[in-house]
Write a protein that binds this DNA or RNA. Sequence first.
DNA 1: CTTTATCGTAAGTCATAACTTACGGTAAGT
DNA 2: ACTTACCGTAAGTTATGACTTACGATAAAG
Lengths: 105, 105
Amino acid sequence: MTYDKVLVALADPTRRRVFERLRRGPQSVGKIAGGLPISRPAVSQHLKVLKAAGLVGDRPEGTRRVYYVDPEGLGALRAWLDQFWDDALLAFKAEAEAEHLRRKS
Amino acid sequence: MTYDKVLVALADPTRRRVFERLRRGPQSVGKIAGGLPISRPAVSQHLKVLKAAGLVGDRPEGTRRVYYVDPEGLGALRAWLDQFWDDALLAFKAEAEAEHLRRKS
DNA sequence: CTTTATCGTAAGTCATAACTTACGGTAAGT
DNA sequence: ACTTACCGTAAGTTATGACTTACGATAAAG
């Protein structure tokens, strides 16, 4: 569906580091920004892109905002990957079949 | 392994169109460029990036150069995807477990 | 009610990368 | 040998996006 946004979101290395920090569980923005070599607003901008791609979700928790991994984004990526793989395999089989017939004649 | 290059390569829309043209089988550079709204040299540059990411391979065929899908690239992407998914699921279970124990006390 | 903590947005800067045209190089056809 | 077809690379241009600092907004704490 929207796998294109997922690919764009995961292409940037530091944004991927932000995303991978949520792999071990939900975290607040400040927690995520800590240890990363960029400013906190930069982290917020990355989270915005990740959210638009369906890779993360967020919920308010007091004055802070907790982000978590949304399965939808990676699901869309996986669906595209499987589809592409099946198509390529099918085309490869057809190619091999045609080659086989060509040698018999 | 080198899934980062794969993500960067697939992030660009027109480069993804170049890649998806090889889904139905191997093709020459000229064939790929035909129909695309960009120049042929641009296609060559995209193919260079795709090849460096392990997404495509190429073989000389007379004066032309035929490109095909290399399984290695998408394989690396899939491996990263599975790993991430497993880790996230594990973290989610641990979180739920901790929450359960917290409610019992 | 004032202060503090936490976060998102706006505006501006700067590097990157996706194009273009121009050129050179190799293999096949005449 | 010369021409033609096909392709990769070089150099230059331009738009995009990843950062920064500055500011405003909301919720808890005192």
